[in-house]
Every structure is written in C-alpha cells, then in structure tokens.
C-alpha cells in the first residue's frame, strides 16, 4: 500500500466503515443480550467480519483485488463491522457480574471462531 490516498478512496473507506457499523448496530439490536449471557450479536459480526477480511486479503495477495478496493472493503467495511471495544467492555461486565463462565466463553469463542473464520476465508480463496 502506498502512502498516497485519493480523497475519493478515503471517502469510500469511511462510508464503508459507517455501513459496517450500522449493520453491527442493527444486528445487536435484533439480538438483545440477556444480562449475564453471551453477547451473541457482537460474536456473530466479529466472526463474519473476520471471514470476509481473511478472504479479501487472500484475494488481494493473488492480485484479484486491487489495493484501493482492499482498503475500502477490509479497512472500511470489515473494520467498521467488527469491534474490539464492545467485546472487551462486555467481557469485563460479565466478570464484574460474576458470570465467569459467560466471560470465558466470550473470550475463547471470539478468538477461536474469529481466527478460524479468517484462516478459512484466506485458505478458501487460495
């Protein structure tokens, strides 16, 4: 990736990120978290976004996706769709509410499924 970025591409990255954020928000409202339980909506977007990012990076490495589009889709859309801040605060709130089992599940499932999804996406296009 070069350091030069056209304003149009930058704007597209921002809009793609906003679209990802709205989709994440819509899903987490559609699947409300019961207090003390696993935040399923955020887990789903994080795993799905990881799969997309893995596949898109795989495509970009095979020159099947150009650099600008990679930036828009990976940095923009996948970055906006997935989140780290919500995951960490929700996990700590589970711990503070003595819901250790849900907290551990949230950590393990997010990273095991997220890494598996990213690797799966990456290998699938290879």
């Amino acid at each position: 990736m070069t350091g030069v970025l056209s304003p149009l591409v930058a704007a597209a990255v921002l809009v793609a990120g906003a679209m990802g954020a709205v989709m994440r928000y819509a899903l987490s409202r559609a699947l409300p978290v019961r207090p003390g339980h696993l935040p399923g909506g955020i887990l789903i977007v994080n795993v799905v976004g990881s799969a997309f990012a893995g596949a898109l990076i795989g495509l970009a490495e095979r020159a099947a996706l150009d650099g600008d589009l990679r930036l828009v889709l990976v940095t923009g859309f996948c970055g906006g769709l997935t989140t780290f801040s919500t995951w960490s605060v929700e996990t700590i709130e589970l711990v503070d509410g003595d819901r250790w089992r849900a907290a551990v599940f949230n950590v393990v499932l997010t990273f095991v499924l997220g890494i598996a999804a990213a690797a799966g996406g990456y290998l699938l296009v290879g």
Partner: peptide, 13 residues
C-alpha cells in the same frame, strides 16, 4: 465512533 475505531477483523486477519 469507538465500535468502528476498534476492530477484531484486523486482529484475526
């Protein structure tokens, strides 16, 4: 703001 500033897909990828 914070949800899209932070990212999990960049970490896993």
């Amino acid at each position: 703001v914070l949800g899209s500033f932070t990212t999990l897909s960049a970490v896993t990828a």
